[in-house]
């Protein structure tokens, strides 16, 4: 039986179709989840896709965090369910306190869309186990509020515990502290990522296919679990 990966659609989610496609290409079964429904439909993992949930009004991710579906996701995450938040999804995970820190306006003050080089720093999370440690990849980055910030203590803890999942190389596109592109929680089941692996799953439409291992990682970890 194939692994079921839920993809949540909030009002204003944009990359939900892309996340569904990525799960399918990786060999999983994508299941649509609706923001207003707290039923997770027996999925094994959840992706919070990119976009502008609720128009990013108030603060990125601040309203989405209170959607009924998030109650179930927060509960699941605490008991080990794999959750990947991409871009706006990362912002929602921070707002939900599943991940520490926050994402603020790019230091350039411009929205930035570019093919970004990253180094995978942590291959023990359920979303990155198929990478080799230190592997360099190029996947699209596109955000207006992608600068990762946290207090010094939190940054120290993240570094000490190896919870920086991916780091920007060559260019820090948004002013993120410690060049952080993605982090995970203590358990390694919840990952937030500012760049977009779901846009790098086909050579025809992406700069590379370097995004695929994020999705195959979770499928493998769930099958072997």
């Amino acid at each position: 039986m194939s692994v079921r990966v839920g993809v949540v659609t909030f009002p204003g989610s944009l990359d939900d179709r892309d996340a569904v496609r990525a799960v399918r290409i990786a060999g999983g079964e994508a299941v649509a989840l609706w923001h207003g429904d707290d039923d997770l439909k027996k999925v094994d993992a959840v992706i919070l896709p990119g976009g502008f949930s609720y128009g990013d009004y108030l603060r990125c991710g601040a309203i989405a965090r209170f959607a009924p579906v998030m109650n179930s996701i927060i509960e699941g995450a605490k008991t080990g369910m794999p959750v990947l938040g991409i871009c706006n999804g990362f912002q929602i995970l921070c707002e939900s306190h599943l991940l520490p820190g926050a994402l603020i306006r790019n230091d350039s003050l411009h929205f930035m869309c570019r093919d970004q080089r990253l180094r995978i720093e942590n291959t023990s999370s359920v979303w990155t186990s198929e990478f080799s440690s230190g592997q360099e990849i190029v996947i699209p980055l596109k955000n207006g509020e992608g600068g990762y910030v946290a207090d010094e203590h939190t940054l120290d803890v993240l570094e000490a515990e190896g919870r920086v999942v991916a780091r920007y190389l060559e260019v820090n596109p948004n002013g993120s502290r410690h060049d952080i592109a993605g982090i995970c929680n203590e358990r390694g089941n919840v990952v937030g990522l500012m760049p977009h692996p779901e846009h790098a799953v086909e050579s025809l439409t992406g700069p590379t296919t370097d995004g695929i291992p994020f999705f195959t990682s979770v499928l493998k970890s769930l099958v072997s679990a």
């Binding site: 846009h199 025809l204 439409t205």
Partner: peptide, 23 residues
Amino acid sequence: SQYDRYVLGNTVLAQPEDAGMIR
């Protein structure tokens, strides 16, 4: 670079190419 050219996942060609192409 201030525009999202990737969303929907069907962009085959975009600037600075001669034409934009969509699947």
